[in-house]
Design a protein around this nucleic acid. Structure first.
Lengths: 153, 153
DNA sequence: AGTGAATAGTTAAAGAGTTTAACTAATTTA
DNA sequence: TAAATTAGTTAAACTCTTTAACTATTCACT
């Protein structure tokens, strides 16, 4: 690929990924209201999806220090959204789960996000969007590998 | 499209966009070091790209309040990266530009980001990536329209 | 079995980013 | 020209993040 073309693609990619991220967060925030910050919403989703979620796992996924996770979890636990449970076999490990209230809030958010996304996703045909997500996932994998490489140096 | 398929696409999309964002920020941070936070890096890029950039424009682009922009710009101006200039015709308006130091830092970052992105972008063929970015840009446009609609309600 | 290293998580302090509300100063409009 | 609007700032309160030091537990090894 020509260097100039690459440069152009980078500029387009940077601009568009930025826009999509910010606008999507704006629209979702508009849907779910002030109950959750963006970060708390991501955490809520992540814990709901994951089995036996731990602080370390979250810190890796979010690329922040474990103490940043502790702080967020504290706030959400104070509000009764998240529960901590010690592993019986390895008592260093603390599992994070959603409380009943946390789950209800998740369901609420998910419903609203779904309505929003549906109204947009239906403007693509299925092939276009699966092709898009396939490439996106390939990109994600390459980035994960790249991180792995850097770690090993 | 079937409801179930949509649901699956949403889950894949949410997961992958999240991963790409976090890993990309991690890798870029690894390249440019501790000179800039992620947000400051975005601001630096944005001001470099834009002509006659103002706080209001940044606040719109980043979907935050103007006072959040003031705070970041203050920090970067204190470090001598950004300059404020009043508009001669409309003296309410303040234009933001990069100083010489700001520009040097930008060039530096851009070079490093480019090396990183090149090493990844070359693993796609050109058709795949332009198709990807086209769809991405279509998505961005839909989100922008959606925001516009909501504003008008 | 016992010592040293590694692992999971927390705490505290300092700084960065955000929101809200109140404010100044300049411009528009009616 | 008075009233409303616009661009930007300030201050207080809060969230998020990093660094470094810490506790508690488990692993590895002789």
């Amino acid at each position: 690929m020509d260097k100039k073309i690459i440069q152009e693609l980078i500029d387009r990619y940077v601009a568009v990924s930025f826009q999509v991220q910010k606008k999507a967060e704006y629209l979702i925030k508009g849907q779910i209201g002030d109950d959750l910050t963006n970060d708390q919403h991501y955490i809520l989703r992540y814990i709901h999806q994951s089995n036996d979620c731990t602080s370390t796992e979250l810190a890796d996924a979010f690329e922040v220090n474990k103490s940043a996770i502790t702080a967020i979890i504290n706030r959400m636990a104070d509000r009764g959204l998240i529960q901590r449970t010690r592993d019986v076999n390895d008592r260093r490990v603390v599992y994070l789960t959603l409380t009943k209230e946390g789950n209800t809030l998740y369901e609420n958010c998910q419903e609203k996000v779904q309505l929003l996304v549906e109204s947009i996703i239906t403007q693509f045909d299925e092939t276009e969007i699966t092709t898009f997500i396939n490439t996106y996932e390939k990109l994600a994998q390459l980035l994960i590998n790249k991180k792995q490489e850097e770690r090993e140096e």
